[in-house]
């Protein structure tokens, strides 16, 4: 993906996230902003082979947003990619709207219901297992939050995927270092996360999760590996990325800036708000 384009796309997605959250009056902004480049690399960067005009095409790649609370970034990317109208974003959570606070499969482009953390990887492992069994070439991608990795079910799925050599399964961990109230390393240590994954039988690379080129290179290599192992990309990110007062601040796990802060946020996004 060309650099200028990708930078513009990420800026646009951040503005859409902001608009969505401002319109809804709530939302998980920190974890949405940390995952922007990851989703843009996957979708706009052409890593996930999918056609918005044929969302149910059987041989499409699957992407599962296991950290479903950060749905605003997923919705913005799906809308921008053409799965549904961008205007739909402004209706999130309104009576009878298509979009809610956690993704579900009724939304075009959403592959699985998520929001209760720790389940997306197991579902993804099931998809990858089925594809491998049928000798299909489509891939499954799962985005995990780092705070989500406290769930035991994540590690059950890690073991399963490695044992069954699910080479067609790719997990990206949004390693923004923050859970809801604390730094992950102050809550329950996750590091060394890469060594843990390797010990579980995965190929692992660590990248700057805000660098599209690094992400694209790592994710592209997922298809060319020959180890037979599932593949994990640890994406080092900044929670709240792009809005200075939100960055690395646990207070912005969710919430909507108001007044001067909103002005400052829009100013930093170089944008005046409302899609």
């Amino acid at each position: 993906m060309e650099n200028k384009n990708s930078t513009e796309t990420c800026s646009r997605i951040r503005r859409m996230i902001m608009d969505t959250i401002v319109a809804a009056g709530k939302g998980h902004i920190g974890g949405s902003l940390s995952a922007v480049e990851i989703l843009v690399a996957l979708y706009h960067g052409g890593i996930v082979h999918i056609d918005a005009k044929k969302p149910q095409y059987p041989l499409r790649d699957r992407f599962i947003m296991s950290k479903g609370h950060a749905c605003e970034v997923l919705y913005a990317v799906l809308a921008d990619y053409g799965f549904f109208s961008v205007a739909e974003l402004l209706h999130l959570g309104r009576d009878g709207s298509m979009l809610g606070g956690h993704p579900d499969r009724h939304i075009p482009g959403v592959e699985a219901d998520t929001g209760s953390l720790g389940n997306g990887l197991g579902i993804g492992a099931g998809l990858a297992f089925a594809a491998k069994l049928d000798r299909n070439t489509w891939r499954t991608f799962v985005l995990l939050g780092d705070g989500e990795c406290y769930e035991g079910s994540v590690w059950e799925a890690m073991m399963f995927a490695a044992h069954h050599s699910l080479y067609n399964l790719v997990v990206i961990i949004d390693r923004n270092q923050l859970c809801v109230l604390d730094r992950t390393e102050d809550c329950n240590r996750l590091d060394p996360l890469d060594d843990k994954l390797r010990a579980f039988g995965w190929d692992v690379v660590t990248v700057n999760g805000h660098n599209i080129a690094e992400l694209s290179q790592a994710l592209s290599s997922a298809r060319s590996r020959s180890s037979g192992k599932p593949f994990a990309v640890i994406a080092n990110t900044v929670k709240g990325k792009g809005i200075s007062f939100m960055e690395n601040d646990v207070r912005w796990h969710h919430g909507v800036p108001k007044g001067e802060l909103l002005e400052k946020a829009y100013c930093e996004l170089d944008y005046r708000g409302v899609l």
């Binding site: 389940n119 197991g122 579902i123 993804g124 492992a125 099931g126 998809l127 297992f129 089925a130 049928d134």
Partner: peptide, 10 residues
């Protein structure tokens, strides 16, 4: 969860 994934694949 794996069962759900396999079922999603048809």
């Amino acid at each position: 969860n794996v069962a759900a994934g396999i079922a999603l694949a048809g």
